[in-house]
Each structure stands twice: as structure tokens, then as C-alpha cells.
């Protein structure tokens, strides 16, 4: 059962990751990271409004999140960007089952957006193939 609070937590973590990622990228990759971060912020804000509308208080972001590996250069920053999109997409994918109507549409849009950005970052990192067979599927 994936709740709005869980996808909100995933978006908080993604925004934190992009703060680290952006510091190690330049040029087109930096622009792509800024765009991705803006997309995650927009979804975080929408989720926060949704949680408030449901009568609850949105959980704020943690001050810091553990990264899966050290980010020290462009290559590791791109790798983290790919992983961030994959993980966030997976949470949105599991939210499909617990939503309907407009909320499911929003979850599907988010999954698609994360999958496209993951593909772009794989290409920027020279990963082939740049696509995966089942975007959002764990493992």
C-alpha cells in the first residue's frame, strides 16, 4: 500500500540528491539536472497540497539523506541521477495500484517522467542500452 506520504518522502529524497548531483555537473548535464530537480519539486508541492487537503500534515524533508555511494565527479553524479529517477519512478509505479482517476493519472505521468529522465541520464553517462525493459520495476 503506497500512500501519498511515501511518495512525498521519495520526492524529498530526490530533491536532496539533486542538490549533491548538481554541484558536480556542468553544461547540458547540469541543465538536465536542474530541470529534473524542478520536476521533483513541483510534484513534492502538489503532494503536500494533497496531504493537507486530506486533513493531514505533510512530513517535512529530513535535513540530510544517506547517499548510496559517494558523489565526487561527473560520472558518479550521473550515476546517482539515474538511480534517483529509477527509485522515485518505482515508488510512483507502486502508487498506481492505490489510486484511481486523476490521482492515478498523476502517478502514471510521474512514472513516465522519471523513466524518461533516467534514460536521458543513462545516455549522458554513456550507458547502453539507455532504456530498461520494465521502468519502475524493482531489481
Amino acid at each position: 500500500m503506497t500512500t501519498a506520504a511515501e511518495v512525498l518522502a521519495a520526492e524529498h529524497a530526490a530533491i536532496y540528491a539533486y542538490g549533491v548531483i548538481g554541484a558536480h555537473l556542468t553544461g547540458a548535464a547540469a541543465t538536465a539536472a536542474r530541470d529534473a530537480e524542478a520536476a521533483h519539486r513541483a510534484r513534492r508541492d502538489a503532494l503536500g497540497r494533497q496531504v493537507i487537503a486530506a486533513g493531514a500534515t505533510p512530513t517535512p524533508a529530513d535535513p540530510a539523506y544517506a547517499l548510496p555511494f559517494p558523489v565526487t565527479d561527473q560520472a558518479s553524479a550521473l550515476r546517482l541521477a539515474v538511480q534517483t529517477e529509477e527509485r522515485t519512478g518505482a515508488v510512483w509505479r507502486s502508487a498506481l495500484a492505490t489510486t484511481s482517476g486523476d490521482e492515478r493519472q498523476a502517478a502514471l505521468d510521474a512514472l513516465v517522467d522519471c523513466a524518461i529522465r533516467a534514460t536521458r541520464f543513462r545516455r549522458a553517462a554513456g550507458v547502453t542500452p539507455a532504456t530498461v525493459t520494465f521502468p519502475g520495476r524493482p531489481g
Binding site: L96, C114, I116, T131, V132, T133, F134
Partner: peptide
Amino acid sequence: GSITAARAT
């Protein structure tokens, strides 16, 4: 959802 996203990628 995965099939939809794959086609977008």
C-alpha cells in the same frame, strides 16, 4: 505503467 513508461523512453 511500466509498459507505458518504456514506450516513452
